[in-house]
Design a protein around this nucleic acid. Structure first.
Lengths: 364, 364
DNA sequence: AGAGTTTGTTAAGTAATTTAACAAATTATT
DNA sequence: AATAATTTGTTAAATTACTTAACAAACTCT
């Protein structure tokens, strides 16, 4: 009863999930078909929605499917990562129409200037809804400030107000793990609860609870990398002992591998058939599995999504995690939890950044 | 935009938290003062709301506070516990107007019959909104069935449909820990995130996330008793190792104490000054603290509420937990977490049961 | 051909709210 | 003491977003 066009947004949200007929929309929203007719009419005349194909059904008049108009709005996604900055532009249906990359050898001031120029040029062609930025944590997403992430010195304490001025757009900032989790929603389901584990330089996570990002009271999200998996383990910089990040992350794998070869790099370790290296990776997988067990017992997600260079593409990880979960999990909670690998590809991070804009637009 | 009188309920919800003027309601709800005038008028004529005192302010016309009418509705609370069954009746403002207890030596059929008689008599006097039932887990709150809780054989597989028929009221069932957590909301704050730990026969928890009960995908809530605090610990019946319930619960404390005195009972252990017993309790507190550390790192509650005979009234528990948290918690998450003891008294459980009815009525 | 079924539209009516103007009750200022 | 300023609360008309109810459209089955 509060927002002016709340149900219009709801209709758009459903259509965004998958094309629907007016009758199906009526059933999903609980509104009458008459109401849906009216809402759809105004959305069509605003240029946000259009009629698509007519589907074949068993009986009665065939439904006309409704779909988003790709050109209705565009969104800018900016991925600030350790290896550089990526920018993409997605249309209303999440199709990429533009991409650009700046390596981390380019100064951040230059990157910002060129981003401004790029977006100003694109504005002649596209109507933008806003821009989303993702960065490794910690970030202050409420005030839009990147704090002091490891290995990202050039962007320490960067405030997105500056970007907002340069691009002349509303800008949203979110931690990479949280944004990735939100983006996975499109593939897992709109109202599901699931956990995304991002294992690369560190061990992070984003938890989606009933379709919404789980946010901690203090604004940091669940810091799953600092869940202890061994109460007597090694002391961590965070104060706790036996933190998961010390057992499951690329640096920790490299640290172990360097006992055998002091100058080994990640791509070599990951691709090697050497049993000593494979064993190291298996240990990493087991540590990640213990994190999953704790997470399942406390959060009870329906799905756990693996993402990040440490585990991506490694069947090894999935298998180990599944077997340890089935062995250790509290029966009712553990059974039914699916372990899957992320389907977001190469540009997952920049996509998830642009997606933030649409989530805000469609979402509650 | 969906419910017919959604904003009327919202107004009642705010007034239930604490008495408010029309102007304050307008600011809190975002509706205009004109709209609030209309909503309040109809609630007053329905007999749910009434004008109270006029408050003194710095300038301008003095606001007239609005408050719930205590006699508007009544709610039945039923606590099915190991030591017996308690029934209470609360008015619209949560004041008890009736209480009754059946010891566990009385057969459940007799209890049910007498509950039916009692409520039918009270119905002549009071207008009931419904009844709430709490029981130790596991329960199936969706289908309203108590499953097979330890030490509660007389009520195994009891379906609340039977109660609903007997009392001729709508009946809601909830696990004790969850209901207690919901009831604590009134004292902690309506939109806060906090964890209630109930340590007695077992170790249970209820987590309130942004003012709503955190529910797992599989309907069991967070099973914090089966969080592992020692990956190499003793094997638990649930499949995991080192589960918290094996280190922090009355049975586990008694088990340790019986090494010294085989027939010791809980009240003796709890009140003794014997150093050996005090040490056992301290160990229990430390185990509970490790549970808190994991919970804080993953859920990041603002407050942790201690409840249940194991820790209630024991400053020992609060102190140990606070010191271990400050030592081990990931800085940003841990600082700021308050550890408090429950303020719900003797009849906490029956109250929390009756409260379920009002929560359903006021809440979304 | 006609009965049955499902989709979608239309027009009239309704409920809940906003807008805008104002009345009531109090404090602050001159 | 008069009046200006401020805040609470009310009223009536207009508006918005729906529902109800009747029906048209487009299809399948017998």
């Amino acid at each position: 009863m509060e927002q002016k066009q709340g149900n219009a947004r709801l209709v758009l949200k459903f259509v965004r999930e998958s094309p629907l007929s007016r009758a199906e929309l009526s059933r999903k929203t609980g509104l009458t078909r008459a109401a849906i007719t009216g809402i759809v009419d105004s959305l069509v005349s605003e240029g946000l929605l259009r009629e698509g194909t007519t589907e074949k059904t068993s009986m009665g008049r065939r439904p006309t499917m409704l779909e988003l108009v790709p050109e209705a709005y565009y969104s800018v996604g900016i991925d600030i990562a350790r290896d550089g900055v990526r920018l993409c532009v997605l249309d209303f249906t999440m199709q990429a129409v533009f991409e650009r990359f700046w390596g981390n050898e380019i100064e951040s001031e230059t990157v910002l200037f060129e981003m401004g120029e790029t977006v100003r040029t694109l504005k002649k062609q596209y109507r933008f809804l806003g821009a989303g930025v993702v960065s490794p944590g910690p970030v202050d997403s409420v005030n839009g400030k990147i704090l002091e992430p490891d290995g990202l010195d050039a962007w320490h304490n960067f405030s997105i107000d500056k970007l907002s001025g340069l691009l002349e757009l509303d800008v949203i900032l979110q931690k990479d793990t949280a944004a990735l989790a939100i983006a996975e929603k499109r593939f897992i389901g709109a109202d599901k609860s699931f956990l995304v584990l991002l294992a690369d330089h560190g061990l992070g996570s984003g938890f989606i609870y009933k379709g919404e990002l789980f946010e901690s009271a203090f604004g940091f999200g669940s810091e799953i990398g600092h869940i202890s998996i061994d109460l007597n383990g090694e002391k961590c910089s965070c104060g706790n002992r036996g933190c998961a990040e010390l057992y499951a992350s690329i640096p920790s794998a490299l640290k172990a591998a360097r006992a055998f070869k002091p100058d080994i790099i990640w791509s070599e370790l990951a691709q090697s058939d050497d049993d000593r290296y494979r064993k190291i990776l298996k240990k990493q997988a087991e540590a990640l599995a213990l994190v999953c067990v704790n997470a399942i017992n406390m959060l009870e997600p329906e799905v756990i999504v693996l993402e990040g260079d440490l585990c991506l593409g490694y069947e090894l990880f999935k298998e180990n995690i599944e077997s340890i979960i089935s062995e250790r999990c509290f029966t009712k909670a553990g059974r039914g939890v699916k372990i899957i690998s992320s389907v977001l590809g190469q540009n997952a991070r920049a996509f998830s950044a642009a997606n933030l804009v649409y989530e805000k637009y469609f979402g509650r």
